[in-house]
Design a protein around this nucleic acid. Structure first.
Lengths: 194, 194
DNA sequence: CCTACCGATCGGTAGG
DNA sequence: CCTACCGATCGGTAGG
């Protein structure tokens, strides 16, 4: 059961196993006893590393949000056209995602178990992230690179599709991060028609 | 709290409220007491309509699976080209989905809480559904209507995107089922480029 | 359909 | 980091 640890701190081990279990069973269906067993401890011992079950979820969700954000910063100011900006943004997103699929899956599917004020903060961050993608698309429509369309729908569809990669991606299974990004990019940029 | 009932049977009321709560909070985070309260009963009373909590989930998941399946039957044998078959399949899927967004959301997100043998059966049905979409795409590539690509990835992306509509669709909010189907179809068929 | 209850399991804590 | 435990809540049942 579980991830190779080696030099990881106990806290990081717990976080990784938690992400894995939260992805597989869901946050609510994963007990602290399940998690403790997966990491080789007794249930009570986890509380010397995390104050509560929800704090583990918070750490996973906000760390991932920050990583996705960080990647966008350099792209938006790049001196290039909209299509390449979008391609870079997709590539960056897929890179983070393939590095930590379990954490990304939790970030996408389990955030609703956060409680306020964290829940509100998280929703705000996600909205910001979408907004920055929308801006790239909007600019591309303005300068006629992209076809006019429902930008909100497009971005929601795109981000959902990217994030769904976590559900089938297997590290080291031959389908590389770069290839996934390329294939997904072609679907959304070129479409289906010949 | 909840849906307008009117002439619905008690059993159907319970099923609808359950779908709503399972969507909002997740299956594991929804207690039979929560559900009972939403439908105006005591917890124990639900068991005169459903044998267990999981039976409610089963009913929702398999009923939706059957409805999605039924729509495909007539489309596959239609005497038309691949593009129109795909458009019809998308339209049919979105029609079912907008009719019962909560049930569809549970069908998409909560099925993992089913237990064998139902879990295995459900996974098989989903795979079959994907396979039938894949066949449409495959045929379209063969006859050169569609561009060659990773068909598995395309269909996974398409179905995920369609199903995600449940997360933001609001009945009677002006964005019609037909318009959603049309916009999503254009994204996947035409792509982004002008 | 309700009341009253069951055994099991949950998140979390004290004390070492 | 473990042992031993807490109060709360869970899915489900009996009996009416």
């Amino acid at each position: 059961m579980g991830v190779k640890h080696q030099t990881l701190s106990r806290k990081k081990q717990i976080e990784q196993e938690a992400a894995l279990l939260f992805m597989q069973r869901g946050y609510a269906s994963t007990s602290m006893r399940d998690l403790a067993q997966a990491v080789g401890l007794e249930a009570g011992s986890i509380y010397s590393h995390f104050k509560s079950k929800e704090h583990i979820l918070q750490k996973i969700c906000f760390d991932m949000a920050n990583r996705f954000f960080a990647e966008l910063d350099s792209i938006e100011t790049a001196n290039t056209n909209s299509q390449e900006k979008l391609e870079l943004a997709i590539k960056a997103h897929i890179d983070v995602l393939t590095e930590d699929p379990a954490e990304t899956s939790v970030f996408q599917n389990e955030w609703k178990h956060l409680k306020d004020p964290y829940l509100g903060d998280f929703i705000k961050m996600r909205k910001d992230y979408e907004l920055r993608f929308k801006q790239i698309i909007q600019d591309g429509i303005q300068n006629q690179e992209f076809r006019a369309q429902n930008v909100t729908l497009f971005v929601a569809t795109l981000l959902t599709s990217l994030n769904h990669t976590t559900q089938w991606y297997k590290k080291g299974a031959g389908y590389s991060s770069a290839q996934i990004a390329k294939d997904l990019t072609e679907i959304f940029i070129k479409g289906l028609l010949n």
